[in-house]
Every structure is written in structure tokens, then in C-alpha cells.
Design a protein around this nucleic acid. Sequence first.
DNA 1: TTGAAAGCGCTAACAT
DNA 2: ATGTTAGCGCTTTCAA
Lengths: 335, 335
Amino acid sequence: MAATMKDIARRTGLGLATISSYFNGGNVREKNRIKIEEAIEELHYEVNEVARGLKTNATKTVGVVIPELNNVFCAEIISGMEDILRSHGYAAIVCDCRTDKKLEKEAVDFLTRKRVDGIINMPVDMTGAHLNEFQKTGKPIVLIDRMIQGISCDCVLVDNVNAAEKAVGMLVEQQHQKIGLIGGPDEVFTARQRMLGYMKALKDHGIAVDEKLICHGDYTIQGGVQAVEELVKENPDMTAVFVTNYEMTMGAVIGLNEMGVSMPEEISLVGFDNLPFARACRPALTIVSQPTEKIARETAQIMLERLEGREELPDHIVRKLQTDIFMGKSIRRQG
Amino acid sequence: MAATMKDIARRTGLGLATISSYFNGGNVREKNRIKIEEAIEELHYEVNEVARGLKTNATKTVGVVIPELNNVFCAEIISGMEDILRSHGYAAIVCDCRTDKKLEKEAVDFLTRKRVDGIINMPVDMTGAHLNEFQKTGKPIVLIDRMIQGISCDCVLVDNVNAAEKAVGMLVEQQHQKIGLIGGPDEVFTARQRMLGYMKALKDHGIAVDEKLICHGDYTIQGGVQAVEELVKENPDMTAVFVTNYEMTMGAVIGLNEMGVSMPEEISLVGFDNLPFARACRPALTIVSQPTEKIARETAQIMLERLEGREELPDHIVRKLQTDIFMGKSIRRQG
DNA sequence: TTGAAAGCGCTAACAT
DNA sequence: ATGTTAGCGCTTTCAA
């Protein structure tokens, strides 16, 4: 069995409170401090965070619930957050719910039982039902990427309407008129926002929205392949496509590739996310690039402030970040 | 505050042991079971796993320490493992150590304090020093992808020598002789294995190993870019390259792209990992494909057996999995 | 500064 | 089948 504080107390002849005080930054006489440190060394003592958590009602652990770890956008954000959280002594329990509402609810309940100090969630269930019970604990929730109407909590978002607008605007500037959209599932917040931006850009330039040019993918690679195939088949006059997430962008490139449709000669393309992939394509892809680093940092910081912050914070913080465009060579000037 | 078992006891008029028994599958009279369930419902009771963990000395949590979450190979494996672990009631605390030995040691100590029931590790420090203390707890360790000499524990590996041999063999069959290697850091186990396979393949076909054709990258995208640029510059007679991980494969494709070197006309290429990326390239890449799903499953299963298994297991299980080749069009027949 | 003791929420003997 | 009780390892009053 691992050594306990009791063992240290016995070995040093000191009381439990003194040892505890030592670990919690209290004042301990110099010679006792030395005795304690020797005992720790010899016994290989490591604080038992479980016991501490039970007593203090704080586990120094935050739960992270996301739709797919196996999705570069999510992985990058988690990687960044975990780094910051751990450097502040917090562990991250990551739960991948496979874009499944039932699993998402289960994950939140699971984390509730684990008594995590807070939850960071990129929500799948847009009703927020999965968070209701947890919210009653009064512990902080930070939502990433997608807002939920009914839930009042902090939120780190990306300005997706603007992102899509800029992307489609660039195509229009190059004289494209028949611009296809490979959108995401209609129930996903970001997908709706990006669709909105697409429509806004068209309308602002006096181009009519054509339903036939809009295709709802499912944010997966295979979905992107299918969508682009469908779009190309159904719209011989289409000259450009805007793809609204990374996986589908990759899928669209695969699809064009395998159909033998040349880019940008036959079809111009603006994709989403993942700079390295954009650079690896031939020709390099023009893409919307999301600030994953910044999302990670903001989210972790807000969570840490809620957990540790002394000063009063506003009721719920909403941060909206802007995207960049990486200019590749996948857009051809039309006409 | 959250409801406790005491609250349920009070509300139902039953004793603590009965409630505990209810939660742990003991026998409880039907009418009491109903009373308990009503109380749970009304009080929104959720078991406190922290308290349970303190008592049972088992946290139902496993630690996962990896070099980079932001690396598709790692992300895929974690995603798969987490799924299986959670479906068995285990949480996964993921620690990304950024390929830093110091951070890796810190992560393991951190997890030790958190009293995780076991650790899954894709090791960075090949001396295994970071695991010594944890191993003294007697709790299970499962290593992924890289074996450590000094540490006796379970291990799920990929047959990387064979993988590289097959890959290089394919190039030789197409009459390539001057085959470049973009290898990984020399201190990484898999990198050495892949290098071994490369050499073995050349020797078996009577081709002399040329140091100038070997380049050590760092397993990153940017490293791949640099490596391919160097190799192409230094070796005008080189006709093919074998790249030994996904990030560098992407980097190599970017490099060729940006140098304007055509593939496979000027340079044939065999890459590593990530089927979708291979398909998205033009032309599609021929790659070595690692069984990430299977690695995840095997690892999680071994861990679960160590944690729950009644039957006696061998001292340390070593599983070695085979790779596949995905045939793209990035190899040109030479001469 | 240090020690004694209570208690966080749960499980597991043991007794009934 | 159910109740009583001790104790997991820690923090935190309260006294000394």
C-alpha cells in the first residue's frame, strides 16, 4: 500500500495537522519541514487526491465532452486546453460521445458522478437537456463552438456567419455565380451559421439562392465525397463549391480527384480548417481557418477563472472569435 | 449540496447498508427497492464516485499518457480506447506530454496522485524512468507502440520492421534503386524499427545503403517539408522516397508540391498512415496503413482484463499487429 | 506552531 | 434482509 500522511506523522513524531499544513503552504518550523521532507522521500509519499477531493469537495478535474476526438478541430482544441488545465493542476477527463445525444447525456452523468469541478462541452444535443442536472450543482459549464438557447453559461464561439460570408464573397469576386454549398447537418449550430453566411453573401451580391446547389453533408469525410459527387452530377453549370468543415473538405477533394474533375479548372473550391492539409493539396486549397489555439486558450481560461477566480465575473461570458482565410490556388477567375 | 446516501436513508427510513446494497447489486425487498428508487428520483441522487473510490481504493479511472494528442495516429487510438473503457465504467484522463520527457514524468506523477487504476502510455522516455514509481504501486501499465527494455509490462506493438520492408520492397519491385528515407528521430523506437526495415529490404535486394539518402525528420509536418527538400536537393538521382509517419508524409507532399516536383513522374512516394489523406492526394498516395482501431481495442481489452479479470494472465502480454498497404498511384515504374 | 478529533460519503464487517 | 459501526486519507476547526 501507498504511504499516507499518517505514516509520515508516525515517522516524524508530528501531528497530522502539521503534515497537512506543510502540504498546504502553512507555516512549519524549519527542522520539522526537513523531517517531513525526509519522510516523504523515504516513503515515496504522494498526496492522495481522492481523499483530498472527498474532503474539500473539489476534485481538481474537469470533464470535456465532445462529439468526436477523431476530428482534427476537436483534437486541436482539447490538446491546447488540456495543456493549460494541467499546468494549473487540473486533470481533464475526455469523453468522446460519437455525435450521439444519448452517449452525450451518459457522459455528462458519468462526469457528475465523478464529481468533476466543471464541464467543457461542444454540444451535440442542442436542447441542452443533457446539461440540466449538472447545472443544478452550480458548477461551471463552458460551451465551445455551439450555443444553446435554454442554457445560461459561458460560451466560446467562432463567427461562422462572417466566415462563410468571406469565403463565398471571394468566389463571387472571381465572378463565380453558380456556387455549390456542402453544408453540415441542419441541427448543428455551426452548420446553420455557415449556411446563413453563404446565403447572406449571395444575396448581398444579388445572386439568387438555388436549392439545387445546396447539399447537406454529415461533417464526415465520406459525407464530403458523396456530397461533391452529387453536386457535380446534378449541376453541370456549377463552377465553384464551398465546403464547410475539414472532414468534408477532404472528402470533396477525394471526390473531385476520383471523378477526375480538375480543380480549379473545372471546379473552384474553398474549404474549411486544417492549414497543413490545404498546403498539401495540389493545387493548395484556399480555406477558412479557425483559431483553434485561441479557442482552446479562451475556454481553459474562462473555466479556470470560474474555478479559482476571486473577482466577480459577469453572469455569462460569450466570446466570439474571428476566422482567417488562407489563400491557396484553388479558385479560378471565372468568365 | 448534492444528495448523499444518508439523505436517502433518512427519507426512506432504511439503513445505510441497505442503500449501499441496493447500489451494489445486493438483495433488497421489493417495496424497499421502490422506496429507494423514488427517493433517488426526487433527490436527484448520483453516486459519489470520489467517496466510493476512497473506500474501495479503486477510482475506475485510467490514465493515458501520449506524446501528442494533436497527431492523428494518437487521436484515433485514444478515441477507440476511451470508447471501450467508458462503456465498462472507466474514465480516461488523457495527458498530452508534448513529446517532452519532463512533462511525461510529471503526467505520470500527476496520475499517481489521482490514484488512477492503471496507466496506458505511448512512451517518450525510452529509459522508462518515468514509470518506475508508478510500477511500485502494482497497478497495471500497458505500453502502446513502443517497447521499453527495463520495464516489464504489457505491450501492444506494430510490426514496423515488416511494414517498412514491404513498403520499400514495393519500390524496389518497380525498379527503384535510389530510394530516400525520411525517418523519425533516432531515439524513437518505431523510427528505429522502420529504419531497420528499410535497410533490410535494400540489403535483401542487393542494393547498397547510401547514407546520403537517409534523412532524420522529427515526426512533424514541417520536419517532413524540410526533409524532402533536403533529400531532393542533395540527391538528383533519387527516384523515390519512403516517409515513415503521417505528419511527415503530409510534409513531404507539401514540399514536393511547393518545389514543383511532380509525383510520381519525378519522385515516387510511399507514405504512412491516414487513408483518407492518401485518397485526397493527387495522385492518391500509396501508404502503409496501421491498424489503429485494433491497437485501441487490444490495449483497452488488456487493461480491462488486468483490472477486472479473474483468471490468471501471463506475466506480460506482448501483442504485435501487422500493417496493410493501401495502393495508390504514387509509385512510377522505373527504367 | 502544533496536536486532537470530527467528518467528507461511501463500503463492508458484523450483528440482528 | 436490514441496521450499526468502523474506517478509507485527507482537511479543518478548536485548543493548547
